[in-house]
Design a protein around this nucleic acid. Structure first.
Length: 667
DNA sequence: GTCACTGATCACATT
DNA sequence: GATCAGTGAC
């Protein structure tokens, strides 16, 4: 078929009447944001100011104006966020909203880079490295470059991965990151630079991309290739970016490049809620937006619909401690409510008991369990509480912390599927070969080398002559993979099934708790059922893994009413009737590591602000005292500096009293 | 070369 | 609790 290009029409005939009464259901600022469809627009949206609502209605409005859903691109922080917005938009209007392109920057990059593989200089069959994988690659290279055989200690792989990632995300050199954040490794800089170069080359050679590469290669593609840029820009005529305060420079550049031909960009964000600075997020992006997009219309959403006035009073006090002047003042119509409270517990156990007891009372009072959340700075802060909740039979789901996808047995199974998708994948080969008895790093490397040089992909295994010590297990692996190569059109779950069958004896030998892990594998297989394409499945597992942590993944399927335990980072954008923030203890929150640096301290403050502003009706801060910190050899016993010394009428202090004491006092 | 020990060291947040 | 370097037995 021949395509005959018509001159571009920006607008179709505007329909006379809209099916949605926008003017009646939105406030003035929201209405303005929703109905400004052309040109750049910056929406500063305070916590609880109806940001999701605004984006949702704007999607509906665009479609009602006759714009093709496929030409709208909605970039969000998590896939869940975009799905939720599009689902709501579909309820407002109709199913057309589901055709809007939505997802994270990373998933968009993944899709685009595979589609434009030729132009991007990276073949499309690449595998994505999650954090653990990229640490493993670094570890391999560190061994090969003999950087770990030194008299002094070389940084650990996790630290190295952090350094490299930060350098990429901030767009600065490895040297600068080390000087700023890890001065103790200053003398390792030459080696770290050497290793970094090797890491880059290795990834390219073996078709591996880490999270940062996805963004960097996308940006480079858009920058270097005018045709691709213009094509993508014309396809995505209306761009919306959520959580703009947590984008980094690369992402801001990508937005600029994508909007090349039209400047139709709406970004939504709140500078007070930037909490990903450690990953290169730059809330300066918000301030700079009007400079990058001249003619930007600025809209501020300042009416808060979430919290009561007492809660808002407190969050205002918190954010007022920020050095950077904040850009908006929130107000609410919900005047009445209980003041937030600060609770001191004499130890961690008592903190947990308080939370549990209060939750039980709230449930009595009719607050549904899934309207209550317990938030904390770090994943491990909830361990003791989890024990207490289990004892009291309170069902909960934990978000953030240690991930299902990062457990060894899940990664083992995925690695087998990854070598099928990309036979050059060095880490995955290494991983699956090391599972075999009598095969260590040396032998694994030798086998992998032979497979690569055979140019027969996975079939190269047949050219390997195994030593008698490991021949039997090696042949089992070879036959299993061979068989899968012969049947390239098997359903994803069928491939998974065969891998799991192969893997199960290994699992049972390696792990004492294999029955539990075996259940995880069954669950993994059930996830595979939803896919008809291995590549898509593997990408999703790297980019959008199930968010719940270990042990909870299956529970989510049948428990409908559960308490939420979450890191504050993972609680972004959410809200609950009652919020507990635990471990608001100076030294834990702010974290002891942040006290050196004013910028990091400021980010901790914003984090506290995010935590507090999740609450609709009730808000409690709890902290245990007499906590010994091994790192500094200090006893921590003061409440967080962010909530200390606030007057009683804004933040009440509660002291926990035993029944005995009450009896005595009342007598 | 592999494997199963040891003891010293160090821990945040996430796509 | 995980990671990592070092050790000695096969």
């Amino acid at each position: 078929m021949k395509h005959y290009p018509l001159k571009e029409t920006t607008f179709q005939a505007k329909s006379e009447a809209f099916s949605i009464p926008y003017e009646d259901v939105l406030n003035t600022a929201q209405y303005e944001a929703v109905t400004t469809l052309q040109g750049p627009i910056l929406v500063i949206a305070g916590a609880g100011s109806g940001k999701t609502r605004t984006v949702t209605y704007r999607v509906a409005r665009l479609i009602e104006e006759g714009i093709a859903p496929e030409s709208i691109l909605l970039l969000t922080f998590t896939r869940k966020a975009s799905q939720e917005m599009l689902r709501r938009a579909a309820t407002l209007l109709d199913h057309r909203c589901q055709n809007v392109r939505g997802g994270t920057f990373h998933s968009f990059a993944n899709f685009t880079l595979r589609k434009y593989a030729q132009e991007s200089g990276f073949e499309s069959g690449f595998n994505i490295l999650d954090r653990v994988d990229s640490e493993d690659v670094i570890n391999l290279l560190r061994g090969w470059l003999k950087l770990n055989v030194k008299d002094r200690r070389f940084p650990r792989k996790k630290t190295i991965a952090n350094i490299y990632s930060k350098a990429m995300n901030k767009g600065v050199s490895v040297e600068d990151v080390v000087f700023d954040d890890y001065p103790n490794f200053a003398r390792d800089i030459p080696d770290l630079i050497r290793l970094h170069e090797a890491y880059g080359i290795h990834k390219q050679k073996h078709l591996l991309m880490d999270y940062d590469d996805l963004l960097v290669y996308l940006k480079t593609l858009l920058q270097a290739n005018k045709q691709v840029r213009e094509r993508l820009s014309r396809v995505h005529r209306y761009i919306m970016v959520d959580e703009y305060q947590d984008t980094n420079m690369i992402q801001a550049d990508i937005v600029r490049l994508l909007a090349d031909t039209h400047d139709n960009v709406m970004v939504v964000g709140d500078d007070s809620q930037c909490i990903y600075g450690f990953r290169g997020a730059n809330f300066g992006n918000i301030m700079d937006f009007p400079d990058i997009f001249p003619g930007t219309k600025l809209v501020k959403l300042e009416e808060n619909y979430r919290s009561t006035q007492p809660i808002l009073d407190l969050t205002n006090v918190i954010i007022n401690k920020a050095q950077r002047k904040y850009t908006k003042v929130l107000f609410t119509q919900k005047k009445d409510g209980a003041p937030p409270a600060l609770i001191m517990a004499k130890d961690e156990r008592m903190q947990s008991e308080f939370v549990v007891q209060r939750i039980l009372e709230l449930r009595e009072e009719g607050v549904p369990l899934d309207e209550i959340a317990v938030l904390f700075r770090s994943g491990f802060h909830s361990f003791d509480l989890e024990i207490e909740l289990n004892r009291s039979n309170i069902p909960f789901i934990k978000v953030g912390g240690f991930k299902f996808m990062e457990t060894a047995h899940i990664k083992d199974v995925l690695a087998h599927m990854k070598v099928l998708a990309n036979p050059k994948d060095s880490v995955s080969w290494h991983r699956i070969l090391l599972l075999l008895e009598k095969i260590g790093p040396k032998t694994a490397n030798e086998i992998f080398r032979q497979v690569l040089s055979s140019a027969k992909d996975v079939g190269g295994l047949t050219t390997v002559r195994p030593k008698p010590g490991y021949a039997k297990s090696f042949e089992r692996l070879r036959d299993m993979l061979e068989d899968l190569v012969q049947n390239p059109f098997l359903p994803v779950a069928e491939i998974g099934e065969r891998v799991v069958d192969y893997y199960r004896p290994i699992l049972e030998k390696r792990f004492d708790n294999h029955p539990k892990r075996s259940k995880d594998l069954v669950h993994l297989l059930s996830i595979m059922e939803r896919y008809n394409n291995v590549e898509k499945f593997l990408s999703d597992m790297a980019l959008e893994p199930p968010n719940a942590s270990v042990g909870n993944v299956m529970a989510t399927d049948y428990e409908d009413e559960q308490l939420v335990l979450s890191t504050i980072h993972s609680a972004k954008g959410l809200e609950w009737h009652t919020v507990f923030v635990i471990w608001t203890l100076e030294g834990r929150f702010p974290s002891i590591y942040a006290t050196r640096n004013a910028d990091e301290m400021e980010e901790e403050l914003r984090l506290m602000y995010v935590a507090a502003s999740r609450a609709k009706e009730l808000l409690y801060f709890a902290y245990p005292i007499n906590i010994y910190d091994r790192g500094t050899a200090m006893v921590l016993c003061r409440p967080s500096r962010f909530i200390e010394g606030i007057s009683e009428d804004i933040l009440e202090s509660w002291s926990l009293t035993s029944q005995e004491q009450i009896d005595y006092l009342e007598w």
